[in-house]
């Protein structure tokens, strides 16, 4: 009798061995009522905690935009701060639903690691931050330098490629946290700090004497940063990807958090009306509410607002739009049509 019970239990256990979330992330998240979002462990402009303990930055705002689309409430996000080393494992294991942590879109990550990049929230490139005292004007003069890097980033590879292809030598010192590498630069443990340029501007702000340091002109790589989801779940992938496009499209059509109500009432532009769910219901096909895009813009703003507030003119970083301007303003941000 007892034997039979054990055998039955084991058989049941074996039958249960189906994967936990193949195509089920959206249902799981909607049922849970909270979005689990992986962000950076402290990077000004992208995601860091302000004085009152809230996460602020482009990456954090993107999480909020997804939550607004899902639940109509941008506050329903649980942020998980992750180091560069931890981030992909956290996504793969299901600890988080979406990773919005200045991660570079590369082919090896897209095809071999079970992840899919949903788009690009920030076009970046790798650069160098040095102390002015060294008198270095160009990255070509860095032969023999000691370079601080973050462990497990694509910058580690780019750095090696750049020095090798230019016939230069370097000594790498690899840290896990961006604060540690900034401190190492400040104390003189390394001559140069290398990272994505946006990060370098952010890091420089954290130093005791930001004006003593300069970002070199060279950009040695393409670093398109964007949100990541697990591969093999197109339903969830679509929600994340089109949240990003809704942000970009809203700026393109001139919809802001301030005028979205006005637009919803008076606009006759068919594209605006479709985006805001007045003349079409794309939400239904994504298992979302009709006004999902309206909620995004109302609660988080459009892409341009998100950019200026966190890294652009409205922030201490003062980064130019550059590649991140709309496609018709000389940048690369472009949304497919809402049709």
């Amino acid at each position: 009798m007892k034997k039979k019970t054990i055998v039955a239990a084991l058989a049941a256990a074996c039958a249960l061995s189906t994967p936990a979330w193949a195509g089920q992330t959206l249902d799981t998240v909607l049922k849970r009522g909270v979005l689990h979002c992986g962000v950076s462990d402290g990077l000004p402009g992208f995601s860091y905690t302000d004085a009152s303990g809230n996460y602020v930055g482009i990456d954090a705002d993107f999480c909020r935009a997804v939550a607004a689309a899902l639940f109509g409430d941008a506050k329903k996000v649980k942020f998980t701060p992750l180091t560069a080393k931890e981030r992909f494992t956290a996504l793969q294991s299901g600890e988080i639903d979406v990773l919005s942590r200045n991660s570079t879109w590369t082919i090896s990550r897209d095809v071999g690691m079970g992840m899919s990049f949903a788009g690009v929230t920030y076009y970046d490139g790798q650069g160098f931050l040095v102390n002015k005292k060294l008198g270095v004007k160009s990255a070509r003069e860095l032969d023999g330098a000691t370079v601080c890097i973050l462990a497990g980033t694509s910058t580690e590879m780019n750095l090696s490629d750049y020095f090798r292809s230019n016939g230069m030598k370097y000594t790498p010192v690899t840290y896990e946290k961006s604060d540690e590498s900034a401190k190492a630069l400040e104390s003189g443990r390394c001559d140069v700090l290398t990272s994505d340029q946006s990060q370098l501007y952010a890091q420089r702000m954290k130093l005791a004497h930001p004006d003593d340091y300069v970002v070199l002109p060279e950009v040695i790589s393409k670093e398109p940063l964007g949100p990541v989801v697990r591969q093999g779940d197109p339903e969830w992938f679509n929600v994340v990807r089109w949240t990003l496009f809704a942000l970009v499209a809203a700026e393109d059509y001139g919809i802001t958090s301030a005028n979205v109500d006005q637009m919803a009432k008076t606009s006759t532009n068919p594209e605006v009306r479709r985006l805001l769910g007045l003349d079409a219901d794309f939400g239904k096909d994504m298992k979302l509410k009709k006004d999902w895009a309206y909620q995004i813009v109302k609660q988080v703003g459009n892409y341009g607002e998100m950019f200026e507030r966190n890294v652009g003119k409205g922030s201490p970083l003062k980064i130019e739009r550059g590649l991140n301007a709309q496609w018709n303003k000389g940048g690369l941000q472009y949304s497919p049509p809402f049709r």
């Binding site: 994967p19 936990a20 793969q92 071999g112 020095f163 790498p172």
Partner: peptide, 29 residues
Amino acid sequence: VHNTVHNLTVRGIASGFGFLHNPAGFGIL
């Protein structure tokens, strides 16, 4: 073991020790 292998395949995560023969491409202190 079965569950892990199954999940890895479903999610398109490469497995096995073949990666050990790939070039590393980064510097070491």
